[in-house]
Amino acid sequence: MRQASRGSKLLLCALAAASFSASALAQSWPHSTVTVVVPWPPGGPSDIAARPIAKRLTEDLGQPFVIDNRGGGGGNIGSAVVARAHPDGNTLLITSSAPIVINPSLYKKMPFDPAKELTPITNLLRVPLVLVANPAVPANNLKELMAYIQSKKGDFSYASAGSGTPQHMTGELFKSVTHLDMTHVPYKGSAPAISDLLGGHVPIMFDSMIAIMPHIKSGKVKAIAISGDKRSPLLPDVPTFAESGLPQVVSYAWYGFFAPAGTPKPIIDKINAETLKAMKAPEFQRILADTGSDYVGDTPENFAKFVKEESVKWSKVVKESGATVD
């Protein structure tokens, strides 16, 4: 009995020491430069979330948070760098949803497993997508557009910012729900897709409000419907897909904060708390308002649950559409 009691005490002491060590580690973190990988080229929507967050964390925590843009592979290359990084809180990831919840179903071979190799910290923002049309398209609402697409008998295309992007998958969700025959035309980013839309080379596209808003305001494209669950204050006259008769079409481009799996929980919790504080600051609130985004700061646990739900949703869309990039 004494031996068992002594063993129990030793175990409790070891657990207490480990707990104290993790807590002390979190208190001292960060003790050097923190690299925040954005797995997309500079200037993209992920940067809109990443750069103000990194700036504020630098100011509040007293160590540099440096953005490292590593584009390529639909976001897989930069994300894999973080997945393989030492889990000490010094290498983090801010990315759109694609490499986390879309690519695992879209790519036959992934360089990392987001469900096993990354730990969710918090959602940073979510922005609805807008279905827009070139002014020459003879439709001013979703019902008219669907009738027009049907009349083309397969001779119709839609553009997106690239294969596997939320823009592409929202188009596939729309196709799946409506059973319309459309050809996907992927581009390398929103800018060239928008350019061809404005030039009349493609008739419609799905894009985030962040990228397409200036062209809607200038009248160069027509906004047909928005993919959020409610109308946007920036586009109060544009109905949702649900209001237009397609309640199944709800989609957001969202951007999240992740760390390598195995990062100590106290560090994850500290990053979460400091990030939520940064998100409530006036600078980030202005970004949300300017881009039509929702505030979605959350606990790591709730964000992890949301990521799992999104993975199931987009896996189904990929399977039904037959989409692939391989």
Rank of each mutant, 00 (worst) to 15 (best):
K175F: 03
T178I: 08
K153P: 04
D155T: 08
M146Y: 04
L142M: 12
S151F: 13
F174E: 02
A133W: 10
S176P: 00
D155V: 06
N141E: 05
T165H: 07
A147Q: 11
T165F: 11
P135A: 15
M146S: 14
L145H: 05
Q167D: 15
D155S: 12
E144D: 05
Q167P: 00
P166F: 05
H179C: 11
T178M: 05
L173T: 10
K152R: 15
A147P: 00
E144S: 06
G164W: 05
A133R: 11
Q150Y: 06
E144Y: 01
G154K: 06
L131C: 06
V177L: 02
F156K: 04
F174K: 02
A159V: 00
A139T: 09
Y158E: 09
S151C: 15
N140L: 08
V137A: 04
I149S: 04
V132N: 03
S163E: 09
E172H: 07
P135Q: 13
S176H: 10
M169S: 08
V137D: 02
A161G: 15
F156W: 02
A139C: 10
G171Q: 01
Y148P: 00
N134L: 03
T165I: 02
T165W: 11
E144I: 07
K153A: 12
Q167T: 11
N134H: 15
A159H: 00
M169A: 08
L142R: 12
H179R: 15
M146W: 01
E172V: 01
T170Y: 04
L173I: 07
F174M: 08
P138G: 05
E144N: 00
V132A: 09
G164Y: 06
Y158R: 12
M146K: 13
V177W: 01
Y158H: 09
K175M: 11
V132K: 01
T170K: 07
P135K: 14
L145D: 08
A133G: 11
S160R: 04
E172C: 02
L145P: 09
P138R: 14
Q150L: 07
A147W: 01
L173Q: 12
H168L: 07
D155C: 06
V177K: 00
M169N: 10
H179T: 14
H168S: 08
S163M: 11
G154Q: 08
V130S: 13
A161S: 14
S160W: 03
S157R: 13
S163N: 13
N140A: 03
P138D: 10
H179M: 09
G154W: 09
E144L: 02
L129K: 03
H168V: 04
K143H: 13
S151N: 14
E144K: 03
L131A: 07
P135S: 14
K152V: 12
S163L: 11
L173V: 12
N140M: 03
G154H: 05
A159D: 01
S157K: 10
P166S: 12
V177S: 05
V132R: 08
V177R: 01
K143T: 15
